[in-house]
């Protein structure tokens, strides 16, 4: 079980990477818990999550090779 993580915008500076991998997480709640343990500074900024390019609003199951993206507030245009 391996989850690919894409990190964008300001979050990539906080985490100091644009791509990560996490092992052994079954859903996005577990994913979040693990992520905040590893990177407590993430508490400083609001962000949303996308699983396989769709924004999620509630706990979502994760499968092998899913792609989770961490998206800080958008500022295009």
């Amino acid at each position: 079980m391996k989850i690919k993580i894409l990190v964008f915008g300001q979050l990539s500076e906080i985490i100091n990477a644009s791509e990560l991998a996490l092992l052994a997480v079954n859903n996005t709640d577990e994913f979040n818990k693990k992520l905040f343990e590893l990177y407590p500074k993430l508490n400083e900024i609001k962000f949303t999550m996308a699983v396989n390019k769709k924004i999620i609003h509630e706990n979502t199951p994760l499968n092998h090779e899913d792609v989770v993206a961490l998206l800080p507030p958008f500022s295009g245009g």
Binding site: Q10, A50, P72, S75, G76
Partner: peptide, 18 residues
């Protein structure tokens, strides 16, 4: 999902807020 990084004359930056 697009982000703008605002760059200043001294090469420092802030992340744009819409």
């Amino acid at each position: 999902p697009i982000w703008g990084k605002e760059i200043f004359e001294d090469d420092s930056h802030v992340w744009k807020k819409n």
